[in-house]
Amino acid sequence: MTSVQSRPAEPVTTGAAVSRLLSFSRQFRAAGLVLVLVVLVVATAVANPRFLSPQGLRDLLLAAALTVLLATGMTLVILTKGIDLSMGSVLGLSAFGTATVLSSNPGLPVVAGAAVGIAIGAACGLVNGALISLGKVPPLVATLGTLYVFRGLVYFWAGGSRISAGDMPRGFLGLGTGRILGIPYLMLIALLVLVVTGVYLGRYRAGRDLYAIGSNPEAAALAGIPIMRRLMWAYVAAGAMAGLGGVLYAARFGTVDASAGSGLELDVVAAAVVGGVAIFGGSGTVFGAALGGLILTVINNALPALGIDQFWQRAIVGALIIGAIGLDRLVSLRLAASLRRSSSRVR
C-alpha cells in the first residue's frame, strides 16, 4: 500500500523541478535585461548629462511607445509559433488612412479617425489570420507576402503625395505631444494595451491557449482547443495593435507618407525575442517584450549620444538577439533532458 502511494511522487518532483527551471530562466532573463538597461542608461548619462534631462526622457518614452505597442501584438503571434512580418506595412497603411480621413473631414471626431486606423489594422490582421489558419500557409511566408502587398497599397493610395501636420486637426496632433505628469499620452496608451494583454494572457483560458498551441499544436488539438479560431484572433489582435500604432505614428510625427513604418517589423521582432519571447513559440510574456523594446530604444538613442558608430549599434542588437535565442535553446534542451529523466523513472 505504501509503495503504491509513493510512486507518483517522482514525476511530481520532476515536474516541480521543470517549473523551477522555467521560473529561474525567466527571472534570470528579466534581471539581466534590467541590469543591461541600468548600465546603459548610467553610462550614457555620465557621458552626456542631457540624456536624462526632462526633454531627453520624454523623447525616449515617445520613441519607445510604438515599439512597446507593436511588440505586445507581436508576442501574441510568436507565442503560437508564428510571426508577423507585415506589421510595419500595416502601421504605414493605417497611419496614412487615419491621416487621410482626418484631413479630408475637418469636423470628424478624433476618436472616429482613430477607429478607422484600428479597423484598417484589424482587417490586415484578418487577412494574415485567414492565410495562416484557413489557408495553412506558413506564417513566415504569408506575412512576408502581405508585407509587400500592404506596402504596395500604401504607395498606390498615396500616389507620391504626403499629408502634413497642417492638414490634420490640432486635437489629434495634441495626442502625439500631450502628457500627464510628464509621461506622454502615447506611452500611457501603449502601457494600457500592454497591461490588458498581459492580464488576458495570464488569467483567461483563451490567452493561455496561445501558449498551448505554441508549445505543442498536436496536444492542443487533442485537448479540444479551437486552434483556427485562436490563431485568427491572435493575428487580428496583432493587426489592430499595429493599426493603433499607425494612429499614434500619425499623431506624433504629423507628416505621413507612403514610407511610414518601413523596416519597423524587424525592430519589433528583435524586441520580443530579446525580451524573452521564445521564437520557437509557447514561452514568454508581453512584459518581457516591452522591456526588450525599451532596451532597444535606449540602445538606439544612447549609442549615438556616446559617439559610437551606427555599425556597432546594429551589431549590439544582433548580438542580443543571438544571445536570447541561444539562451532559449539552452533552456529547452534542459527541459527536454528533465522530461526524459522523468519518463525513465516512471518506467
Rank of each mutant, 00 (worst) to 15 (best):
A158R: 03
L173T: 03
R151A: 11
A158E: 02
G171Y: 00
F150N: 09
L147G: 05
S161F: 11
L173P: 04
V149H: 04
Y148V: 12
Y148M: 14
L173M: 07
L181K: 01
D167P: 01
R162I: 10
A158M: 03
G160Y: 08
G171V: 03
G176F: 02
F172P: 06
L173S: 06
L153A: 15
Y155V: 11
G176Y: 00
G160N: 01
L144Y: 00
G171W: 09
R151T: 03
L175S: 07
P169Q: 03
R179K: 15
I163C: 02
P184C: 08
R170N: 12
Y185A: 12
F150R: 04
G174Y: 01
I180C: 06
V154L: 15
F172W: 03
F150T: 00
R151Y: 06
F172S: 07
Y155C: 01
R151G: 15
P184S: 09
G160V: 08
P169K: 04
I180Q: 09
T146D: 02
P184F: 05
L173E: 02
L173D: 05
T177M: 09
I183A: 04
T177R: 12
V149T: 11
L175D: 07
L147A: 00
G145N: 02
S164M: 11
I183D: 07
R162M: 14
G152H: 04
S161G: 14
G160L: 05
I180W: 14
S161T: 15
P169W: 01
A165G: 05
Y148H: 11
I183L: 15
G160C: 05
I163G: 03
G174N: 14
V154N: 10
R151E: 05
D167L: 13
L175Q: 02
L144S: 08
F156T: 14
G159F: 08
Y155S: 10
I183M: 04
L147S: 06
A158L: 02
V149A: 10
V149Q: 01
G159P: 05
G159C: 10
G166M: 12
G178P: 07
G171A: 02
T143V: 06
R179T: 11
L144N: 03
F172L: 07
A165R: 13
V154T: 15
L175W: 12
Y185S: 12
S161L: 13
P184K: 10
F172I: 04
G171H: 05
G182V: 11
G160H: 06
T146N: 07
T143F: 04
V154Y: 07
S164G: 12
F156Y: 12
T146L: 07
G152D: 00
T177I: 11
L175P: 08
W157M: 10
D167K: 12
Y185M: 10
T177W: 04
P184A: 01
G171E: 11
L173Q: 02
W157G: 02
L144V: 09
L144A: 10
T177N: 12
S164H: 11
G152C: 06
G178C: 08
R170S: 13
G159H: 07
L144K: 03
Y148R: 01
I163W: 02
M168V: 14
G174Q: 10
L173G: 06
Y148F: 15
L181S: 13
G178T: 13
M168P: 00
S161M: 11
P169R: 05
G176N: 02
